[in-house]
Design a protein around this nucleic acid. Sequence first.
DNA 1: GTCTATAAACCGATAGAC
DNA 2: GTCTATCGGTTTATAGAC
Lengths: 198, 198
Amino acid sequence: MGRDTRQKILDSARELFSVHGYNGVSLQDIADTVGISKGNLTYHFSKKEEIMEELLSESQPSDQLGQPKTLQDMDALFLHMQQVVSQHSYYFLYHAQLSQLSPKIAEIQNRSYRTIRNLLKEAFCLFCEEGLFRKELFTGEYDCMVDALHMAISYWGPFSSLQKSIAIDMEYRRHAWSIIYHLLTEKGRAELKSIIQI
Amino acid sequence: MGRDTRQKILDSARELFSVHGYNGVSLQDIADTVGISKGNLTYHFSKKEEIMEELLSESQPSDQLGQPKTLQDMDALFLHMQQVVSQHSYYFLYHAQLSQLSPKIAEIQNRSYRTIRNLLKEAFCLFCEEGLFRKELFTGEYDCMVDALHMAISYWGPFSSLQKSIAIDMEYRRHAWSIIYHLLTEKGRAELKSIIQI
DNA sequence: GTCTATAAACCGATAGAC
DNA sequence: GTCTATCGGTTTATAGAC
């Protein structure tokens, strides 16, 4: 039951953190949910932080992402992000708080952010070379759109949850394409049309 | 010393919350900073939530904002938002968490969000009528850009703080204009040029 | 590995003297 | 209005039996 208990703890913790946030969940809550004692819990994870650290490093959003080579790849990336965000809502809802938990967590987050950023920027440049994206209107426009897209990825969950009374029923994937639609050339727009209807 | 102590509590609490977040600050911390006893603190605010509620309703970002009529107004709004965000960083860093604190706080946030949203959308439509903005490329493009702008307003602080090792030294005001630059017509771009250099 | 028991500290909130 | 003292509850973490 060694590995098994450890995994059960992580699963229960992830679920509880998703609903109540890091501070809203005590070790007692986790132990109760798993069905073990608090003492046993601290045998596996000596500190509460360690659970979160393992949870984050276990499944980083940027893990399984490959460099997008086509608009189709980009769309798949958006779709994938949409799933990650909904499955790891606690990560995005409380990530400012999480970064203060431990230097290790801050480092994990930072690495993830840098990865996504580079992924998007390189894709933009590639699309530009292939005539799918127009050239920059001003220096730094691509960087700005990468930031906007990145911000949308990170905060789509909390942002839309705060506005549930307003009509933001549009899913993230559509929002992402809408943000960068103006960057597409005629060729790019034609190609996108076969992928998704904006 | 009646009003005085109450105000001191609010000032100290705002400062502490900004750095450590709501859960990271205890009533003891606040009392110590003000230089009063914990008992005296709970005389003024019987519950911890009440401090945050008063703090939020005291200075809502959308309070002193008028409807932007010109690009100059819009720029002033961005500038104003930039100051608000830096002065009330706790509000933006922890707003997902804060909304769960009490229904009253959730309502305050929701009203604020709706106000900013409408402010931006109406300005967009006005600018379009005046030939400063081009027409929408697709239905909902304005709404999408309003969301992107709104997200940037809300999360510029936390977003840039998480990326401090990366080159995001561009201030929020410039970022906001960059996001919507592609919406400007030739006439609009000429007018913007006299306000800010993108 | 898992348990019980408990330490040690801190939390928000209350009671009552002054 | 301000204080001290304290209650009842919760927290993380440890010690030791099995």
